[in-house]
Design a protein around this nucleic acid. Sequence first.
DNA 1: CATGGGATTGACT
DNA 2: GTCAATCCCATGC
Length: 187
Amino acid sequence: MKPSFYARPVLEVAPDLVGCVVSHAGTSGVIVETEAYHDSEPASHAFVGLTPRTATLFGPPGRAYVYRSYGIHALLNAVCEPEGMGAGVLIRALEPVAGIELMRERRGLQRLESLCSGPGKLTQALDVELEHNGCDLAVGPVVFSARPRAWRDVEIVVDKRIGITKAAELPWRFCAAGSRFLSRPVR
DNA sequence: CATGGGATTGACT
DNA sequence: GTCAATCCCATGC
């Protein structure tokens, strides 16, 4: 999608990204789970303001923000809102679509439901790494594209965000209703 | 320059 | 259910 898709309030973009497709390095999947983060609330990396780490989040919309979590995993976000606002959507789970055997090799697992059912899992399955931080999602190498026809009217369910200690009560998690590929069930 | 804390995962009790 | 692995970087001295 074009930058204008992302240059909106992050709480609008996050549910709209569910059903869209992420592609990279011979693999792709449909987004089934997202979370919104905004510089106005303390769970967001952008809460601390503009630093070297958060520069991408405050930059132009429609770019990838990729960072390392717990020293091990790369986590993928889409930068939202106009340049100068620190907001992003964390991609938490995908339904695998293409390159599934390649995903199995990268993950060292067979079970389809386990390939991309978590923010660190999907980056491993798609071979997304820190070098992709700042990548234009309309151009690549990591590409986000619009919902396929079958996902046009996907039903979204809302929940609290997972794995955070601050602002944990905000209902800013968005999931495809009934998906088997979520990182965790909806409460 | 030293320290500490994660937007997680997988292995184990 | 518990817990360790391991890197980046924000913060504070």
